[in-house]
Amino acid sequence: MKTLVLVEHGDGKVHDATLATVTAAGKLGSVAALVCGDGEEAAKAAAAAATVAGVDKVLLASGPAYAQMLAENVAALIVPLMDDYDALLCNASSNGKNVAPRVAALLDVMQLSDIISVEGDKTFTRPIYAGNAIATVESSDPKLVITVRGTAFAKAASEGGSAGVENVSGPGDQGLSSFGGCESVKSDRPELTSAKVIVSGGRALKDAETFKEVILPLADKLGAGVGASRAAVDAGYVPNDYQVGQTGKIVAPQVYIAVGISGAIQHLAGMKDSKTIIAINKDEDAPIFQVADIGLVGDLFKIVPELTGKL
């Protein structure tokens, strides 16, 4: 089978989630990597994609229409390319979720969302109902469009490959949408989906200031990424991109420290594949303790600063 992987990149580097998607694609067949972007950054990203182990070929679509991954333009680029491929795989990220279904509909294919394993050429498993059930599904479509849950597949090595880079062009700007900027806080902290350790805070953190005072020093001490429950994001303690859960980010770090998080099923859906879960909560019956490997019942406002001090 010939597969095409939509690469996500930034600063000329391939994102970790794409490395996992390359692994999933490799289970199906040969892997071509499509880099969409503009200018020097895209060229660098294409060169980086070419060295990823398991990538046989890199397609580079460069131009202003592709600079921001606008779904309208990127889907219009991918659809004709799919004449030569049997499967498109994207990360189950905000970008992949935005683009893949648009391509699937244009190909008249029913997409497989958020796969966690490859069971055969046309058979995959995927979580449904916030991960409370795992469905094994088989596609009957002639082509496959798939989004891949990055935490479920090992990352392909970013070095070792030596694929050629081929330029491709598409229909360009579809004239339907334009990019109006982004608001993101640049942070030196590890990105949530690739962090080895995550410290997450819940509604019990009271407000934005307290969240900062309690959670950040512990995260700094451990070199950890910082996450939050939906409740903490809704309450405005932290921005939306901190949210871990069914509809936020799916994470699986080595260690996940849940502070003042009760453990609603929607939150558990986003972190229960973490290797070790540590929970700190004042309510000893909180559902988070049912999944935690190590639990400590008590007042987080006393425990967390003491813990930070002693580590």
């Binding site: 294919v109 029913m110 497989l112 058979t123 979580p127 449904i128 991960g131 409370n132 059930a133 795992i134 469905a135 094994t136 599904v137 088989e138 596609s139 009957s140 479509d141 229960k272 879960i277 000893e284 303790f289 049912q290 999944v291 935690a292 490997d293 190590i294 639990g295 400590l296 019942v297």
Partner: peptide, 20 residues
């Protein structure tokens, strides 16, 4: 349907660990 659900199963259950 284009996708056939072959089976639906429970996810692996995580066991509660220790409280310190």
């Amino acid at each position: 349907p284009r996708l056939k659900t072959l089976k639906v199963s429970e996810p692996p259950v995580r066991q509660a660990g220790v409280k310190v």
